[in-house]
Design a protein around this nucleic acid. Structure first.
Lengths: 163, 163
DNA sequence: GCGTTGTAGTTGAGATATCAACTACTTGAT
DNA sequence: ATCAAGTAGTTGATATCTCAACTACAACGC
């Protein structure tokens, strides 16, 4: 449509930064996943879900809020929660006030699994990220990725609106 | 084993940085994937694979080198290349010198697909990352993630050796 | 009230990813 | 030469993810 045909390609140094971001990311998550597989009973997604629940009152949160918080599609969350429910880590119950709503609640077993996994997880995050960087670097990474996330979020909600 | 039981939990500010990294990342790749889905015939993985091939002599590279370069498991690369081969984007042929080896080569059709996708891809990368950050920030991100990637790579190869 | 539109969550089919074998070849030691 | 160990790549079963319906309820306008 209103698009012009000329593209501003990336400069050499931008290419380098972009590729370092891509590759570093891939390796980081590969290694973190490997650490979880090796010593923990929860994969990264399951662990993160339980952390999120552990911070809610009554260890309970609406499915939609959980999906937003974890940046997961509704469908993916449904499937994940179904699997975790079968393992007894979480349970579902009706949300009060809105009969469409479903609450997801961390069970005692889920809490035990979280407590058991936490040390290994945190050690891995330190080994692979926090202790690898100087404090200023870690702080900068957080600030930068927060900016990036905000931009992405804006684009995603705009995209949903422009139909 | 020789592990002590006490864990150095993350400080508040470390938590904040780590979570911003996680969430920013998730949102960024979600948005980049959405941009590819919306306007391009190649998803991010396929696009990246073709870029990698386009930079090799004769647009050809050994499967194992390709897997290393893209930070993909051998198995995943095999499946991906099989699908792309069925679409005519790449072709396989025997590597010379090592009869176990297989070369992956980008076809003319693959090249056309890459050329067609490149502008949209680069625009999305700019919109979502490069143009969102100050030059110093982008440069810092590249440097930091390169450090992280190196640490992860070291851990992964150590892990393979310690058996 | 009644219809329209929007939201919450699920479902199932198809696409993709992972994991553990497996084949075929190479390398190096004896 | 022969054998053991390592490397390259594939395979297929299983697990997980995605996408497009679909159900059920809520909210709003009239």
């Amino acid at each position: 449509m209103g698009e012009t045909n000329d593209v501003r390609w990336l400069d050499e140094w931008q290419q380098i930064a972009w590729r370092a971001f891509l590759a570093g990311n891939a390796r980081f998550f590969e290694a973190l996943g490997a650490a979880h597989d090796a010593e923990l009973d929860l994969n990264i997604g399951e662990y993160t879900l339980l952390v999120q629940l552990s911070e809610q009152p009554d260890r309970t949160q609406r499915m939609s809020a959980l999906a937003d918080g974890l940046v997961l599609s509704r469908s993916r969350l449904t499937h994940t929660v179904t699997r975790m429910e079968q393992r007894g880590l979480v349970s579902r119950c009706a949300a009060d006030g809105d009969r469409r709503g479903v609450n997801c609640r961390m069970t005692d077993l889920g809490y035990e699994a979280l407590v058991a996994a936490a040390p290994g997880h945190v050690r891995a995050v330190r080994r692979l990220l926090v202790d690898v960087l100087d404090p200023e670097e870690l702080e900068a990474l957080g600030r930068i990725m927060s900016k990036v996330g905000t931009a992405a979020r804006r684009e995603l909600s705009e995209g949903a609106a422009d139909c």
